[in-house]
């Protein structure tokens, strides 16, 4: 077992009057796809937002590659890339300019910047639309821009929050393939989804959240159990709460 890339300990968070997280803990390793599963409102997105320092926890701790999210948020953000379902891009910038903007904000400079941007454009097969303004791109192309800007600084931790929920079959397949490729390159991939089929195929280990609590945790086989598919196991766990 390698050192955990992301360590989440007894996380608690209340938004408004809603207690969204009630002591969530898990660890995700480098070189694996870690699933964060649960129905809508389970607390998946809130957990990811705390890990990437957008929200502060009310209680508990999060460490990313040894950096605490409270004391070193900028170091944490330097080491993570996040892809969400909400594909927000700057419409009046080209696909390439969108990626370059985030690369610069991540501290990449001239020669390194061009090399990295060229690299992600080639890797995600964006060459045909790299110079097009983002406002004219399809959803799949925009999602590639979103992935490109999340990985252009080559982060060691990648987080995908329902990344395929607005995409067609082909674009979804490409995103899944990208996650597998990232895992192969030793990245820690955290995949938040409520699509059990995707989770079963992709994840090495997972945690299932329900109403802010961890209801199961372990390898995919352990969570699924003998002779069941993941969806049946998931439904059984959730209904038992």
């Amino acid at each position: 077992m390698t050192h955990a890339a992301v360590v989440v300990e007894r996380l608690e968070k209340t938004l408004g009057t809603n207690k969204v997280l009630r002591g969530v803990s898990f660890e995700a390793q480098a070189g694996e796809i870690f699933g964060l599963l649960g129905p809508n409102g389970a607390g998946k997105t809130t957990t990811l937002r705390i890990i990437c320092t957008l929200l502060a926890p009310d209680a508990g701790n999060v460490g990313v590659l040894g950096f605490d999210t409270r004391t070193a948020p900028e170091e944490v953000r330097r080491r993570i890339g996040v892809v969400t379902a909400d594909i927000g891009v700057y419409p009046r910038l080209s696909a390439r300019e969108n990626v370059e903007y985030f690369a610069r904000l991540c501290g990449l400079l001239d020669g390194d910047l061009v090399r990295r941007v060229d690299g992600v454009i080639e890797r995600l097969d964006m060459g045909s639309f790299a110079k097009q303004r983002a406002e004219s791109l399809s959803s799949g192309q925009k999602q590639k821009v979103a992935i490109a800007r999340a990985i252009v600084h080559d982060p060691d931790v990648l987080m995908f929050d329902e990344p395929t929920s607005n995409l067609d079959v082909l674009a979804s397949k490409e995103v899944r393939e990208f996650m597998v490729e990232a895992k192969g390159r030793g990245k820690c991939v955290i995949f938040s989804t409520h699509v059990m089929h995707d989770a079963e195929r992709l994840c090495d280990r997972m945690t299932i959240l329900h109403e802010g609590l961890v209801v199961a945790s372990g390898s995919t086989e352990e969570v699924r159990g003998e002779g069941r598919d993941l969806e049946s196991a998931f439904l059984a766990l959730v209904e038992a709460q």
């Binding site: 900028e74 170091e75 953000r77 993570i80 996040v82 985030f102 904000l105 991540c106 501290g107 999340a150």
Partner: peptide
């Protein structure tokens, strides 16, 4: 906005 705030 979220992507912007995610930069270091």
């Amino acid at each position: 906005l979220e992507s912007l705030l995610l930069t270091p």
